[in-house]
């Protein structure tokens, strides 16, 4: 059964499911002066997995960058409330420390910065922000090794420069490692399934599923069905030309797989 409904109606009805961790309301954003997001409404209650699906160029990655606070992705209208705070007023690093984690579609290679140094700096920056004591080198290494093992991330990858020369699969596993180390409240997975073989996909999905909890939410951005077979979503949003044109349960994804995005083309205009 597919629930076809307008975006506001659909997300509105979900408000009662739990306190929303994230509420995006009428979000507009421009990139290089061009409007890419033209009024997005998505409400993600704590503990839920929401999926944003849409064709290439619909604005999926723009949405994830706006939420993470990337320069050049300028919100022009609307609001994003995260844990009761005005997310758009926060700096990128403040958002991360408040528990937002963006798993990049193309993780960035940073030659010269070793994995251990990067991960330890990030973990300790977040611990400091939460008023926790920093981990010393030994404590951190112990933790990182344990988490890396769970994710099939080789120890030599921790010593190498961040993402430098990693294969597509290694990069995605490395993102998952960062996620498990940083233990975010809201995970934004931007096309995490792209360029992954099935084994790597399964490892990443296991890591994500292992982190699911009643107070942690996931916003998954994809245009493939296959990740949804591994990470069961609560809600699907269809994004076309900068707008959410439909919101529904899991069956909406199957519908999309059968009939494609063309059925929504009229609504996007």
């Amino acid at each position: 059964m597919t629930t076809m409904s307008g975006p506001n109606e659909g997300t509105g009805s979900r408000d009662g499911a739990g306190a929303p961790l994230l509420a995006i309301r009428d979000l507009h954003a421009t990139v290089a002066g061009r409007e890419i997001l033209k009024g997005i409404d998505i409400v993600v209650p704590a503990g839920e997995v929401h999926v944003v699906m849409g064709p290439n160029g619909a604005g999926k990655s723009t949405l994830s960058y706006v939420l993470a606070g990337r320069d050049g992705y300028e919100p022009t209208q609307g609001e994003v409330v995260y844990q009761g705070q005005d997310l758009l007023a926060m700096k990128t690093e403040e958002r991360a420390r408040a528990g937002i984690f963006l798993a990049f579609q193309s993780p960035v290679e940073i030659p010269g910065v070793t994995g251990v140094n990067f991960l330890k700096t990030a973990v300790n920056a977040q611990r400091r922000a939460r008023g926790e004591s920093e981990l010393d080198a030994m404590q951190f290494l112990k933790l990182a090794r344990r988490k890396a093992k769970e994710l099939d991330v080789g120890e030599e990858m921790l010593r190498r420069s961040v993402n430098s020369g990693f294969s597509g699969g290694e990069k995605k596993r490395y993102e998952a490692l960062q996620m498990t180390l940083l233990e975010p409240r809201l995970m934004i997975l931007d096309e995490t399934d792209s360029g992954l073989d099935f084994d790597a996909l399964k490892t990443v999905a296991q890591a994500v599923n292992g982190m699911r909890s009643p107070d942690r939410s996931i916003l998954m951005i994809t245009h493939h069905q296959r990740l949804l077979d591994l990470i069961a979503p609560d809600c699907i949003h269809v994004l076309i030309d900068g707008r959410i044109v439909s919101t529904g349960d899991r069956s909406l994804a199957h519908e999309l797989e059968k009939s494609g995005y063309a059925q929504f083309a009229g609504q996007a205009a």
């Binding site: 420390r97 990049f104 960035v108 940073i110 910065v113 990030a122 920056a125």
Partner: peptide, 30 residues
């Protein structure tokens, strides 16, 4: 400074000044 790398580091909670410092040290690393 590579703005993409800077964003990546900041998106993990590293303050901008510290992220810049990391990238500068990385530049000089070899």
């Amino acid at each position: 400074i590579d703005e993409t790398a800077l964003f990546y580091l900041r998106s993990r909670g590293i303050a901008e000044a510290d992220a810049r410092q990391l990238l500068i040290e990385a530049f000089l690393a070899d």
